[in-house]
Structures are given as structure tokens and as C-alpha cells.
Design a protein around this nucleic acid. Structure first.
Lengths: 162, 162
DNA sequence: TCCCCTAAGAAATTTAATTCCCTCATACAC
DNA sequence: GTGTATGAGGGAATTAAATTTCTTAGGGGA
């Protein structure tokens, strides 16, 4: 992967509807080699997938809640089941195992506080958890699916900084 | 918006490379009306954009850090500048204003702990913050851009449950 | 020097998106 | 009841884009 690939990724992270020909023009290639680079990055799994992003307000999921979960160092079995249960809630859009105080952190999206309460009840009905604490986001100031490409490892045969 | 639109959104949230003809078959329409529904939802902003999602490991940003920030109830000016500074870091992929103990929460992606430290130094060099605490994610168990469509408001003339 | 390998590009071909035009059903006015 | 406007669906033609094929140029290594 070189700086051209990086340029391509930068553009596709922003807008994947760009025609290959336009993309090629922007990165300074003709369509064929540009197309082949994209194919290769898809095969290699650098490009995982292409998706449509929806407007949370229009879809009625404008409220984000961060849920911090502490457990009593349960069995491996419990942990497995816990993950399985949590993952299948569509409201849980992110789910991390953490170091430090909190054991797990969830990002949950719902229409309003009431819906969050309903979600919370459904969750604790399905699995026993020692300690849960919820923090509400008042405003989403930034949300992007674009990963920084500055750390990417590139061939620097003919270096460049795009 | 009705259940057909919802079905379309469900599919496009998963994979936006689906050909309109295939999509149409799956939702039980022919291509023309299906295409028109997609156009309309793009115009209406329900579909915000289409993007490529990259593999964080291959891009060398596998570490997620949640950064909790407390401020001393600063001036509006300070808050404005704070947001502007934070937003422009490409490592900050999410940024929320919170209720409760913590004032702001960031999700930051970097290659490793060392890179996080470098990011942290760059951040505090650019803006004064009272209290910062960092929590590292050991594992990303779930991450999806798919919003739950169950809360969407739909015309239920001819009801259905897809 | 010659050959091989890799990447680029032009042109042809295939496939998919988009438009055009027609039909049907519902609703509302007269 | 009849006429008509409106909105949604579908088939076929058209346009645009993706994909393939074939050809060319550069850069080592034998």
C-alpha cells in the first residue's frame, strides 16, 4: 500500500458513491489501475464493507446513552453468555471490554429516556449484572466512521504526503 | 415511510453495494419504484451518505481509548474553541457533551498506547482542560453503524412487521 | 543486452443505473 | 354515479458506469 492507496481510502471513507473514473482523476490515475487497487483492498479486507449511514433524528434514535457495567469476575461461561445477550440488542451499537474500573462499556441508541428505561429493563431481565451506571449524551458533537490514515504503514518508494 | 422503506434501509445499512434490482427483488418491488424510494430517502436526508468502512487493524488504529473530560464551567467562548480544537483531530472519531459527572466524552483511535500518549500531549498543548481521564478498551466486542429501525415512525396503512 | 515482472492506460464489452412512458387504484369533486 | 387528478408500480429503452481485454512502458536481475 502506498500513498495512492491511502488517497483512495481517504476518499472512499467520505463517499463511496464516487465513480471509479472520478476517483481515478482525483488521485491521478486512469480508471483501470484505480479500479484494480480498490479490488485488491477489498480482497485484502482493508475495505471491510460499504454501507449507508442514516440520520439518527429521522430514524428516531437521537439519544445516545453510555452504559458502564461492572461484574463480579464471573465465570468464562457467564462472560460468554453476557456478550451474546448484549450483542443481539440492536440498540447496542458499540460494546467494549475495558481495562480499569469499568469492565464493559456500551453505547446504546434510543428515541428518548423512556425508551432507554424500557431497554434497560429488558437487558437486566435477560442477564444478571452487578453494577450498571448510565450516562446520557446531551449532544453529539462529532461522529465519524472515518479512521485516521496517518498511522497506516505505506511503501515509501516515491514518498508523498497525501 | 412505510415498511418497504424500512426494509430497504435495513438492507442498505448492511451493504450499500447491493444492486437496485437485487434490492428490489428482496423487498418485493420492481427496480423503478425501488430506485425512486431510495432517491426520495436520499433527498429527504434519511440516508445521509454512503461510505466505505475500513479495517482498523489493517489501518493501524486498533486501540480505542475513551477520554472523559471535566471542565470548570468555562465561558461560552472557551467551549466553542474547545469543540473546534477537539473536532479537528482525526483520531477523535466520536465526541459527546454529557450530562452528569463528566462534561465531555471522546472516543479516540490510535495504533498503541504510545501513540495515545503523543495524541494526549498534542491535545493538552492546544487547549487547557481541568481534568482528563482515559479508559482503554481491551476488546471491541461490537461496533456497528446500523441504527435500530424499530423506533422508526411508519405509515401503517397496510401493516407488516419487517 | 535481454528477459521478466509489475503497474499503467486505451478501448471494448458487459452490467447496472436512470429515464420514459404506460397502467392501475384510490380519493375527491361535481 | 361519473369524471378526473394524484400517487405508486412496472416494462422497456437509454445512458452511464463497472469490468475485462489487450497493449505498452519502466526497472531490476541473469
Amino acid at each position: 500500500m502506498d500513498r495512492l492507496d491511502r488517497k483512495i481510502l481517504r476518499l472512499l471513507q467520505e463517499d463511496s458513491t464516487l465513480a471509479v473514473a472520478d476517483l481515478a482523476k482525483k488521485v491521478g490515475l486512469s480508471t483501470t489501475p484505480c479500479w484494480r487497487r480498490i479490488q485488491k483492498m477489498e480482497e485484502d479486507g482493508v475495505i471491510r464493507k460499504r454501507v449507508a449511514l442514516l440520520d439518527p433524528v429521522k430514524i428516531n434514535t437521537k439519544v445516545t446513552v453510555f452504559v458502564s457495567i461492572r461484574t463480579n469476575s464471573h465465570s468464562t461461561e457467564w462472560l460468554k453468555r453476557f456478550s451474546e445477550v448484549i450483542v443481539e440488542f440492536p440498540e447496542v451499537v458499540e460494546f467494549y471490554r475495558m481495562s480499569g474500573e469499568v469492565d464493559y462499556l456500551l453505547r446504546v441508541v434510543v428515541p428518548d429516556i423512556g425508551a432507554y428505561d424500557a431497554f434497560y429493563k429488558r437487558m437486566i431481565a435477560r442477564i444478571e449484572i452487578r453494577d450498571v451506571s448510565s450516562a446520557f449524551a446531551m449532544e453529539q458533537i462529532k461522529y465519524t466512521t472515518e479512521l485516521p490514515l496517518d498511522y497506516m504503514v505505506v511503501d515509501n518508494q516515491k514518498s508523498g504526503d497525501d
